[in-house]
Design a protein around this nucleic acid. Structure first.
Length: 227
DNA sequence: GACCAGGCACATC
DNA sequence: GATGTGCATGGT
């Protein structure tokens, strides 16, 4: 494997300190139950969180934020509830498939998935249609409590801007291992770190966002990386 | 009205 | 392995 440009342990912890000082605790991920977290992870695929909240609120309204109740909804009911989060036909299918699998394989309990070895739990999630690496890792970290570091578009942009340009292009797994191997294997740290990246990304790392006030503004920045 | 958002699967080369 | 496309709503 070719050597990646140097962003070492100290740089990664510095990012964390700067974001944490700016925002304080994010308490990420929002959600009252592991199942709600997992559903939110699917719904937020390529979608603004604001719109996910609307869909989640619709499911709560229907008392359907629980596996048995959710699969009991008709396709039309589920699609209508998920409509505000976009891609609603695809997502209705994905959420239903995931929930059916959770009921059949784990009695509807993410705690059961959490009892498996991490690699096995990850394989099971990735085998589901509609669950890719980021969604799987959201579920593993926030709903099951496994020590995995979630890589999202903001993670790639932030690392790329501040010393690791190849973060935009290297494969998901390679970047995940790069970071995990340089941080303490600490679940609360991984949870909060990703939360801070999401908040920083939303405020300063969207396509049109400005950099003034960014918690990472004092760091060297690659001006050629605009997003 | 154009552009974009915390992805993913599938087709094609 | 890299690149392109469909999926769809809501904010700016």
């Amino acid at each position: 494997m070719s050597r990646l440009s140097a962003l070492g342990r100290s740089a990664l912890y510095r990012f964390y300190r700067l974001m944490s000082r700016h925002y304080g605790p994010t308490g990420w991920w929002p959600g009252d139950t592991p199942f709600e977290i997992a559903v939110g992870a699917i719904l937020t695929q390529n979608t603004a969180w604001r719109n996910v909240e609307r869909a989640i609120a619709n499911l709560k309204q229907l008392d359907a934020l629980e596996p048995q109740a959710l699969v009991a909804l008709t396709d039309a009911e589920l699609e209508e509830a998920l409509r505000p989060s976009g891609y609603f036909r695809q997502k209705a299918e994905r959420v239903r498939r995931f929930t059916r699998w959770l009921l059949e394989r784990h009695g509807g309990r993410l705690e059961s998935l959490a009892e498996l070895p991490l690699s096995r739990a990850r394989e099971e999630l990735l085998a589901l249609n509609g669950i890719g690496p980021e969604t799987a890792d959201d579920i593993l970290l926030y709903a099951c409590g496994f020590p995995v570091f979630v890589i999202d578009a903001y993670t790639r942009r932030i690392l790329a801007r501040h010393g690791m340009p190849e973060a935009l292009s290297i494969p998901y797994e390679q970047l995940r291992h790069y970071i995990e191997s340089r941080l303490d294997r600490d679940i609360p740290l991984f949870r909060e770190y990703h939360g801070l990246i999401v908040w920083t990304g939303k405020d300063f790392c969207r396509r049109r966002a400005r950099c003034e006030g960014c918690p990472l503004a004092e760091l060297p920045k690659d001006p050629t990386i605009g997003t």
